[in-house]
């Protein structure tokens, strides 16, 4: 077996693993520029475009002193000539020390990690997993609340298709959370996740209104975008797209420690007047992604920060 350590899924992470990565991310934030990866190569293979995630990873690699190779547009790669993922990964693992991969196929990152003899970091595999997003969410929660334990987490919007909320639930199960789900019936949290929560003994409530009661009972208000591309019936999308718009005027009942997170990009679910309130944290959250990705790149290479 290989000695490498890939990062492809949130499911296998323990409480200790999560807290370890948070400690590493805090250390990366304390000193973001350090040349500990001097002479190493990080490959960023984006079989599906995602400018935000790619820039975050490439900035992290550059700040650690690594060189970056890769592609941001699958149209320029051999996959358009019919090359298999298997062949591309074998080829790139001859060149790079770490492979950061985003792919439209579900399970692609796990498969790549089985082929490559270098660590693979999953930067999103279709609608399946996006574990570095979950880790930066957890780091943001930890930073703003001083703990991950015993928090009220309110998840709002598309809870049916949103992979970020599903992964967040999975990761937070180690920290005794209380969940509040706010979603229209069409986009409600799927039964399979609710069953899991029940098995884990984690309490949750379901609401259809984003009202003062829901906002006032949250330590974290996690907003999500309703994604048009998930709907086969556009009439259904039109019905729910403007259902939850968070405005500054709705925040009077919020707890002092409450912070609003959003995986970004937002469309209209958070009004611009919220940006100037002390509750808005989504831009800082994106910045936290840089430190968490520095931590994850180091961790898969066996480097402790």
């Amino acid at each position: 077996m290989h000695a490498r350590k890939s990062f492809v899924s949130i499911a296998g992470l323990s409480r200790k693993d999560i807290l370890h990565l948070i400690t590493m991310a805090a250390e990366a934030e304390r000193e973001p520029n350090r040349k500990i990866l001097d002479g190493r190569i990080v490959a960023t293979l984006f079989f599906e475009p995602s400018t935000r995630t790619r820039l975050s990873f490439e900035t992290a690699a550059n700040r650690l002193g690594a060189k970056v190779i890769g592609f941001s547009d699958p149209k320029v790669t051999s996959s358009t000539k019919g090359e298999t993922l298997n062949d591309t990964i074998r080829m790139v693992s001859n060149y790079a020390d770490v492979i950061v991969m985003r792919h439209y196929l579900e399970g692609a990152a796990l498969y790549a990690s089985e082929i490559a003899d270098k660590p693979v970091i999953n930067a999103g595999d279709g609608a399946h997993q996006h574990p570095t997003q979950t880790m930066l969410d957890l780091y943001s929660i930890y930073k703003t609340q001083g703990t991950l334990d015993d928090l009220d987490i309110c998840l709002v919007g598309d809870l049916k298709y949103g992979r970020t909320v599903h992964s967040l639930i999975q990761a937070l199960r180690h920290f005794s959370p209380r969940f509040h789900f706010v979603a229209p019936r069409e986009l409600a949290m799927p039964e399979v996740y609710k069953q899991q929560l029940t098995e884990w003994g984690i309490p949750f409530e379901e609401h259809t209104e984003l009202d003062a009661q829901a906002i006032g009972s949250a330590d974290i208000l996690y907003m999500t975008r309703v994604q048009r591309e998930r709907f086969q019936d556009l009439a259904e999308y039109e019905k729910v797209k403007n259902l939850y718009v968070l405005r500054a005027s709705m925040l009077s009942a919020a707890r002092n420690n409450m912070k609003i997170l959003h995986p970004l990009p937002r469309v209209n679910e958070i009004a611009y007047d919220v940006d100037d309130t002390p509750f808005a944290y989504y831009f800082k959250q994106a910045e936290n992604g840089l430190y968490m990705r520095e931590a994850i790149i180091c961790d898969v290479l066996g480097i402790k920060l």
Binding site: Y104, L110, Y111, G126, A127
Partner: peptide, 25 residues
Amino acid sequence: VCVTNNEPMPSRFHVVSPSKVRCHY
């Protein structure tokens, strides 16, 4: 959109109950 349906690779399933299987990928 599972990788096993799009790559020349064998599938892998875990038997989670006598009537249900889960894709490894």
